[in-house]
């Protein structure tokens, strides 16, 4: 049942990311909802499931919006692993959670641009570095909303005996 639920959530987020999120851009930069989704899923699921989901989301995202298939899959998978490994710390601290998403957004973009530059697919420029910073801030801001949703509505983040079946993600 949870598998179908996850598929449904991923489906919704990918649609959101590829459709109306365009309208909510800041200086032309839109947030990466899938990155935020992985953090939320990884916090409330087992490491193996988080890894597979991270890979799956990345892979679907690659197919939907990337020319290089596997790039997002690889990064999202390792991101999910990192989140799962450190979920106990992240759940308890709101600030760490926000810093994490900021750093992951930053590295996600650096990783992408590094690989693409390496193979001469895209070149790095100053404008891109500014857009990375905006995206980092935007993602952090949206992540706060998800964090509050998890904490206030589902009362989960600070509960040491977390019932994973009741988690939002």
């Amino acid at each position: 049942m949870k598998f179908i639920y996850h598929i449904f959530i991923i489906y919704l987020f990918i649609i959101a990311q590829t459709t109306f999120i365009e309208k909510y851009n800041i200086f032309g930069i839109k947030p990466n909802l899938l990155l935020i989704l992985i953090t939320s899923i990884s916090l409330f699921n087992e490491k193996t499931i988080s890894t597979i989901i991270g890979f799956f989301i990345g892979f679907v995202y690659d197919i939907v919006s990337s020319k290089v298939i596997g790039l997002n899959a690889l990064f999202f998978m390792y991101m999910a692993i990192t989140y799962s490994e450190t979920s106990k710390i992240i759940k308890k601290n709101f600030l760490i959670n926000t810093i994490y998403i900021f750093i992951f957004t930053f590295f996600y973009n650096i990783f992408n641009i590094a690989v693409l530059s390496m193979f001469n697919i895209k070149k790095f420029n100053i404008r891109f570095s500014i857009s990375i910073l905006i995206e980092c801030l935007y993602n952090s801001l949206i992540n706060i909303i998800f964090y509050i949703l998890n904490k206030k509505i589902f009362c989960l983040t600070n509960n040491p005996k977390l019932n994973k079946k009741e988690a939002l993600f």
Partner: peptide, 28 residues
Amino acid sequence: NKYKTLVLTLTIASSLTILISIYNEQNA
């Protein structure tokens, strides 16, 4: 260790698809 195998497999798979989609247009 099944989990490590899984991670390794997925990493290799991702890397291969990256290389395929970049280098070999036919394979891509």
